[in-house]
Design a protein around this nucleic acid. Structure first.
Lengths: 214, 214
DNA sequence: TTACCAGTTTTTGAATTCAAAAAGGTTCCA
DNA sequence: TGGAACCTTTTTGAATTCAAAAACTGGTAA
């Protein structure tokens, strides 16, 4: 197995999989399940630690990182900057095909909203944000976004929403698609910022992060 | 030696030290010079590869990354977004002490400009930008900035400047300090963007990056 | 009981070892 | 001479080994 593949699989286990934040990372088990020795696994652990997904405790193993309130604040601040930048860059660069794709996702998302299917809603939501970043056509930006997104994924795409917030989010997404279609870079950046700032408030209110852990 | 220390030393060798972009990374020599075995060195290599400073060629060793024109474009675009965000966040957060520090650096930088001492000028310049990022008080942002900055350092802080550009850069820095002192977040973000966009043009004109390598 | 300690086991971090791949060198032949 | 085939050496990636640190265990004494 390739080094990058180990990193990807480990990242997946940490962000979508069975190891919850704060939990010990079972080195032996993972070695067995990936069918590799400790050397390549530990290399992957160091990489993910440098991304902030893993915490290395000297001589005491590694744990899945747990977000503090400060982390959430910082991650959302940077995510806001990155998504706004992505929006601005995407406006002049996005192809009609990409626009169509996003419009399609948007329609599906509205369907899920009507059905009050939060999980499917979030899945479309996430794909839309990722599509905008992709349309910005900047690999460095995409890499940073992916790294941030991985860290706040649980907070961002699991937090429940009040009916009012949910309706508002839908409205904002109409605005996002609209700004994209009009190629209104400034407008799009502004809506994206507002959209994320609201989401952040919601996550903080939901008390997703721990105030006291590191 | 600690893992993070190995990463830091290797990063230093790659960004300020003797291994130029595109050059082979001499694993054996570095192991000897750091007095460690290959295992921890290779862990550090993987981490720096994930940051983009090192390129791993399967079965053919690793090389110091070389910037393509596309890389330069992408890195500057993201750097712009990050510095603008840092400026916006710094305005309400910066302490008087930090402001004084930057004013001090600015004065020294002007001195170096008067003496046409490019190297010392760049050193102050870099410290000012780093101080603004620090004043934003966001560790995630600072980490990303450091990672981007490491990659474009050679381009950004080595490229020679025409007398006109240099004078303009000085002017812009007056504007930056001024906006900070007025706590004018929007204004500061705008100047920082302009400032970096101009620098990017200069770097591209100087033909720093290779068009054909990866 | 409960706090503490010695001895054992497990885990961790890093050096070493090992097999496979690549690079380098030599010989042989057209 | 040029180059193709073969063998040797070096380098690479990853498993294994090893020493040190931490965690666990059972026993002892207050």
């Amino acid at each position: 197995m390739m080094h990058d593949e180990v990193v990807a699989r480990l990242r997946h286990v940490l962000t979508e999989g069975e190891i919850p934040p704060g939990a010990r990372i079972p080195e032996r088990e993972l070695c067995a399940s990936f069918a590799i020795s400790r050397t390549p696994l530990r290399e992957a652990l160091k990489v993910l630690a440098s991304e902030g997904l893993v915490v290395l405790l000297p001589n005491r193993g590694s744990r899945a990182a747990k977000l503090t309130q400060k982390d959430v604040k910082e991650l959302f601040e940077v995510c806001e900057a990155l998504e706004a930048a992505a929006g601005e860059l995407a406006c002049p660069r996005i192809t009609d095909e990409q626009l169509g794709e996003i419009a399609e996702l948007q329609a599906r998302m509205v369907e899920h909203y009507r059905a009050r299917d939060l999980l499917s809603y979030y899945r479309c939501n996430r794909l839309i944000h990722e599509a905008i970043v992709r349309a910005a056509d900047n690999a460095v930006l995409a890499g940073f976004y992916e790294s941030i997104a991985a860290r706040i994924r649980r907070a961002r795409f699991i937090t429940p929403m009040t009916p009012e917030h949910w309706a508002l989010a839908i409205q904002e997404h109409e605005g996002i698609l609209n700004a994209l279609q009009r190629r209104d870079a400034g407008g799009l950046a502004h809506i994206l910022r507002t959209h994320l700032r609201r989401k952040r408030e919601e996550v903080v209110l939901a008390g997703f992060a721990d105030a006291n852990d590191r």
